[in-house]
Amino acid sequence: MLEVKDIDVYYGAIHALKKLSITIEKGKIVTLIGANGAGKTTTLKTISGLIRPRSGSITFKNVDITRTAPEKIVAMGISQVPEGRRVFSAMTVLENLEMGAYLRRDKKEVEMDMEKVFTRFPRLKERRKQLAGTLSGGEQQMLAIGRALMAQPELLLMDEPSMGLAPLLVKEIFEIIQDINSQGTTILLVEQNAHMALSIADNAYVMETGEIVLQGTAKELMNSEEVKRAYLGG
């Protein structure tokens, strides 16, 4: 479904991604783990078209999207739950969800999807008129996920959705991710919480300073000595 091939990304002189390649098959959960500053967020931003790679290519559903405008990429079916949630703080919960459906013209279906989001996150429904900035961290993360779902993505990119949440909520978020996936959405999950991520993913990539250093099925990586030592705390 998504094929990232040998991309090089620079921030000025900083070589942030070095010949990075990732393949994601339809219907899977793929996780990308790595330490702070490894380049995970950069990878997601590049897929979404916010940053342009200097070389290499990105294809989605067999279409080259390497130089495609970000809004077209959204229209093609790739949404992102960005790092740090990035909800529109001075807009209501409802308006945030509407923004997620910004490119859609099928009003009736949008309403139905809105109801689905509210069924999935009843707390958002109660707070639909509330400003997003006044939500708790967990609620904001749910809103960020709901907002991304409103675009009806085929591929959902999630950047550290468990960041800063209490353990109980982290568990809930991971269950939600699995549920979204079971309803047909392919997921690329960036996580620091390697243990949880590997436990729900099909395939995994490990990044260090802009490069993929390990890849395989989630099971393989979970049992790999290197991953255990560096990311699973033992």
Partner: peptide
């Protein structure tokens, strides 16, 4: 409003 609040997040919504 979305662009004024968070331009990058707005772009991720497909807003030009």
């Amino acid at each position: 409003r979305a662009v004024s609040l968070d331009r990058e997040a707005a772009v991720l919504m497909g807003i030009s």
